[in-house]
């Protein structure tokens, strides 16, 4: 396998109607598999959320990370994703989330650190055109002078890498702190004592509607690498729906790390 570049691939865009948190988890599973098997071209998927959610990382403890009672009280669904990394607090209008499904050749011989920065370089550029001087903060954050903007996670499956990112467009910090348990140890080397201060939303930094930020991101990806509109194939959606209704809604997967 030789290293490929972005322009060696015919990138597809999937940006569809709002979908449930469990279906998003399942689509990442199915589409990574499809790209790895060579049945789908490399794809950028922009997520639209149908409801609020806490998305915990593959290796996070459910009870250590989430106050389940508070989540229920706020009507927030808890799901576990297939990649590692930290918990995301999602409210539909406040979050910009995307996934990149790419052949492993795109990140061949890169360190993890290089691969994270490489797969988000287009976002740093898009933010730059919106007046935000952002940079990659290893291991897996996009940040600016004003604070953290986004968190990324990768997982390798078969012949593909899944790279997905959640960006804070706006945030209800009080609600987030009500639902997520963010311990003192986690903040010990971050130079701040307030979890709310760790995330600075795009809304305050751009003054633009969420949709305009997404449009600029898509336009930047298209300009740099090429991008064609696509839709989910019926069998992709069928398989993802089955996983969403089964594995990703089930207590076994959610509680796999209790």
């Amino acid at each position: 396998m030789t290293r490929t570049d972005w322009r060696d691939h015919e990138w597809r865009l999937i940006h569809t109607v709002p979908q449930s948190p469990a279906l998003h988890m399942a689509l990442d599973d199915v589409l990574t598999h499809e790209v790895g098997a060579g049945r789908r071209p490399p794809t950028l998927r922009i997520w639209e959320w149908a409801s609020s959610a806490v998305v915990i990382g593959r290796f996070q403890s459910l009870r250590n990370e989430v106050d389940a009672q508070a989540a229920r009280r706020h009507g927030i669904e808890i799901v576990r994703r297939i990649s590692g990394g930290g918990a995301m607090f999602i409210e539909p209008g406040n979050t910009i989330t995307y996934s990149i499904y790419a052949p492993l050749s795109l990140v061949k011989d890169m360190s993890f650190q290089e691969a994270y920065a490489f797969l988000d370089a287009w976002v740093i550029e898009a933010l730059g055109t919106l007046g935000i001087k952002a940079w990659y903060q290893p291991l897996n954050d996009i940040t600016s002078e004003a604070g953290k903007i986004a968190g990324a996670a990768q997982v390798h499956r078969g012949g593909a890498v899944l790279h997905h990112v959640t960006m804070a467009y706006d945030i209800d910090a009080a609600k987030m702190l009500d639902v997520l348990r963010i311990g003192r140890e986690k903040l010990s080397d971050k130079g701040t004592t307030s979890a709310a201060k760790r995330v600075d939303p795009l809304r305050s930094q751009t003054g633009l509607p969420r949709e305009a930020v997404i449009e600029r991101m898509i336009a930047t990806f298209r300009r740099l690498y090429g991008l064609r509109h696509d839709v989910l194939k019926p069998d992709e959606l069928t398989r993802a729906q089955a996983l969403a209704d089964g594995k990703f809604s089930g207590a076994e997967w959610l509680g796999d790390v209790a």
Partner: peptide, 15 residues
């Protein structure tokens, strides 16, 4: 023993 955290492990069965 239950190890957990916001780290990354491949494959996930390593946990």
């Amino acid at each position: 023993v239950q190890l957990s955290g916001d780290f990354f492990l491949e494959p996930d069965s390593a946990l």
